[in-house]
Write a protein that binds this DNA or RNA. Structure first.
Lengths: 362, 362
DNA sequence: CTGTTAGCGCATTCAG
DNA sequence: CTGAATGCGCTAACAG
């Protein structure tokens, strides 16, 4: 008992399929009022639901937008996904979700799957990687994306261009000023902090992490501070926790030493890692900011109620998703009409947000 | 420059489309080794990507699974979404995401959209509502779902059946023992708490909230405690915050009174509300659990690092998503073969988890 | 084992 | 303004 088809509706209404089609979707030409009503009536008396697959086949455009994230349960991606979802709704499109775990190989699979479904566009969130082990994956991903673009697909990637991608047509990058913002964070922190800095970063080669590390170091240098030591671990809560344990040990050792323990300010390259690190310090009996200051990055909404409140850099995650999605919308062929109306992708800016977690000890 | 088609591949390989199709997908019949290689070579020399829309049209099955949530950025839904995503991947299907904000009317739209896309199945997460204002929406949603099922679609809904749904074929409910667990939470809390209880609930008519409220009251009654007062507000962080403000005022007033202030234990019907309430208390200078105890529900992962650690009920959110998804998978027509192998939907159980936020004041 | 034929449901040319 | 034909890309019956 399959769903009823346009043909059935047409027959019931006593018209041709073509006419039925014209009234049931927004065709340019408008059938007679009377006939239109008959069709509509027939349609919902039969519970007609248009077959989007068939429509897509005929029009070769699916109204689908593919979203690629590392992990949808990560609040960072969830926030971006919300923005994508909203923009998609504005454009009356639906979003296809793919969770990849972060590997380019899996991202390539996702792109292929989206291409197969003839998604009109693809948004890739999540950090690019240029680690050696990802070289092959990156190349394949780039090739897949190029092909997708060549076939008319639009792509927006958050943060950095996909390593090795060469497509230009329909390929957008939503730039996130990670480096600059990390620099600003560093200088603002340095203004109120005399002690040393340590950076808890993700694995080397993760571009987002690297940018934030580099920006932070630059910021320190700019104000005449010596570079921070960099600890590497996984780009998630448990990575932060592990690094936090190390640091806790170090802090406690220093404290029992002869010399006055230098205060430490920890910069974790994202909020989730920062929370992990904070938890580790706490579990070792240390308190923040008394025994160490700590700052994150992203300003994850769910984490704003943490105490001590986490110093961080606010990123407009939802906007990022929204802009990325809009960037892939069909542009209303800018002949020479409204120039200013361009709902431009918008430039992403963030904001350093200092809170209690980095208040200098009294 | 559209993507290349099966026909083109076939022509390049010098075979018929049918043969090409047979080698490029897993058809029952296997073409000759030599010809198969030729086809495969032609395929990726052309960068062939099968058109899933066309495949779906021909096979009338899309490999799509629709997921309906209130808000993908809410960690509760994000966790479920992760489970759904995982199960979908196991079944080599893709997930279509719809965010509805919670209204049945919008959920109905989402179901219709999924039906249009010929999604094989639909998972509905998020609390059902039986408020008056949702009556019409519920009816329409139920009708839409029934139709969808009648047309062969499978549906799984988390928590409660959709109000008014009558379909039986292919309609599954993943039961979540909210009431029972809330009851257990109440009794366990009561064992260590002499003071009064207050419930911070969502709007009346939200079934999940109502279940938890009812269960908690039942639990209290079972151990001979008097019923808790119920405060109603929005089913999210800010709802919790508002209720928290009210309670803070009340606590402070009581404290300044003549009689010894009775200790209050607050049960918020979900973790996010609990965090909001806790934030409100804190902003009013109260401390937890010294000035009031507080407990939540769900055990959201991102919130586990909060201090004081939140007492709550752990729910296997990911499993819920996974089970719901599996429940909608095509059942391998249980002739009379392996009976025990049934990767059964599994029954959902939770676990009361008492932490610092409800430790009785010393 | 391969090739041919016929739709899947719809949009869109073209005629009328 | 309406109806009849054609094709979107692919699969699944048939026939060879």
């Amino acid at each position: 008992m399959a769903a009823s088809t346009l043909t059935e509706v047409a027959r019931l209404a006593g018209v041709s399929p073509a006419t039925a089609s014209r009234v049931l979707n927004g065709s340019a030409r408008k059938p007679g009022k009377d006939i239109a009503d008959r069709v509509r009536q027939a349609a919902d008396s039969l519970g007609y639901v248009p077959n989007a697959q068939a429509q897509g086949l005929a029009k070769s455009s699916s109204g689908l937008i593919g979203l690629i994230v590392h992990d949808i349960a990560d609040p960072y991606f969830a926030a971006i996904a919300r923005g994508v979802q909203e923009a998609a709704r504005e454009q009356r499109r639906m979003v296809l979700l793919a969770t990849t775990g972060g590997g380019p190989a899996e991202e390539k699979e996702a792109v292929a799957a989206f291409a197969a479904r003839r998604a009109d566009s693809i948004v890739i969130a999540g950090s690019r990687s240029c680690r050696d082990e990802d070289q092959d994956g990156n190349a394949e991903l780039a090739a897949e994306l190029d092909r997708y673009c060549r076939n008319g697909g639009r792509v927006a990637v958050v943060g950095h261009p996909v390593v090795g991608a060469t497509a230009s047509e329909g390929y957008h990058v939503v730039e996130v000023p990670n480096q600059e913002l990390a620099g600003r964070l560093a200088t603002e922190l340095a203004a109120g902090w005399d002690g040393d800095f340590v950076i808890v970063g993700g694995p080397e080669g993760l571009l987002t992490s690297d940018d934030r590390v580099r920006g932070f170091q630059d910021g320190l240098e700019r104000v005449g501070r010596r570079p921070a030591e960099v600890l590497r671990s996984a780009f998630n809560r448990s990575g932060g926790y592990e690094a936090g344990l190390q640091l806790a040990a170090r802090i406690k050792a220093a404290r029992s030493g002869e010399t006055a323990a230098p205060q430490l300010c920890i910069f974790a390259v994202n909020d989730v890692m920062a929370i992990g690190a904070a938890a580790a310090l706490r579990s070792e009996g240390l308190r923040i900011p008394r025994d160490a200051a700590i700052a994150g990055f992203d300003d994850i909404e769910t984490l704003r109620d943490f105490r001590p409140a986490l110093s961080t850099v606010r990123l407009p995650l939802e906007d990022i998703g929204r802009f990325a999605t809009r960037a892939t919308g069909r542009q209303p062929d800018t002949g020479n009409g409204e120039e200013g109306e361009s709902a431009s992708p918008g430039v992403i800016t963030g904001e350093v947000t200092l809170r209690r977690s980095t208040e200098a000890a009294a």
